[in-house]
Amino acid sequence: MTAWLPKDFWTRNETLVAGVVVLFCIIAMLSDPRFLTITTVSDLLRAAIVIGILAVGAMLVLVSGGIDVSFTAIAVFAMYASSVLFLAVWPGAPWPLIFAASIVFGALLGAINGFFIAFMGLPTLIVTLGTLSVFRGFLLTFIGSQRISDLPPAMRDFSRGVLARGTTEAGNFYSIPWAALALLFVIVMTWFILRKTMLGRSIYAIGGSVESARRIGINVRWTQFFVYVYVGALAGLAGIIHGSVGRMADPFSLVGLELSVIAAVVLGGARLIGGYGTLTGTLLGVALIVIVQNSLIVIGIPTTWQSVTIGLLILLGTGVPAYRAKRAASRAG
């Protein structure tokens, strides 16, 4: 009956997280029938776009066997710097150009991480911890520390663009913004890289065993370098979307989210030791975190308990597989 399922289906993290998401939705529907309406879902989707893009990047780093805590700083740096740049140089620029600039900024900052990690061999956590401070400090010292609310008009136009909008029969307004397409684009592109290119397979291989990768001739340095540049570019994209949709370039936003994003990715089954992580799992992890952040109240838990809930989810989501692995190891003797 379950022949079409992967053999390890029932023990996978993805299944566990999907189960929790479904369970949450069922309870939420029972306590508030309006929960599963297009209005709520489109609200959740909007909230998931920026975190989702960042999480895809964080997943890639974990798969390669590293960890990156600087991507939020990159996102806010790229967003703010490109906003400032275009306000000064060409306020009327079309949004794709502004977006491209932010992505390039992100990629450049990612390249700095990549340089220290891939070419100087420094530990990833330490490097990105350092660059988190550097990027943020540089932004706030030399570029600006004021919130900018009169962004280039094209950015506002972008945030007004919707794929679908409407009003439900109950009179609730909903809309799915263009930005959702960006998330979709990132997912498809990352899926393609990871599943269909040798580069993507090399990222998994390096995560599985760096030494073996070197021995069979994978160019470990350039592959790692690519990972950090790509993550930087994704962060730049996430940052500019965050700024556009929020209609404000706030240099203090996003930073502080990095550990929650990593938590979402790990909930989705990526392992800190590298080599393991899927897009499905990552998106499920993001879904779980976003639902808890936005809809906890629906199932009767006051929002003041949000932090406790997420913390417990992380402990359960990582604790159950860890404990199972520990038991299996001790049984094997």
Binding site: R201, Y204, A205, G207, G208, S209, E211, S212, A213, R215, I216, G275, Y276
Partner: peptide, 10 residues
């Protein structure tokens, strides 16, 4: 090599 240099995750 003695450790075979394989990728356990692949």
């Amino acid at each position: 090599f003695q450790d075979f240099s394989l990728f356990p995750n692949l």
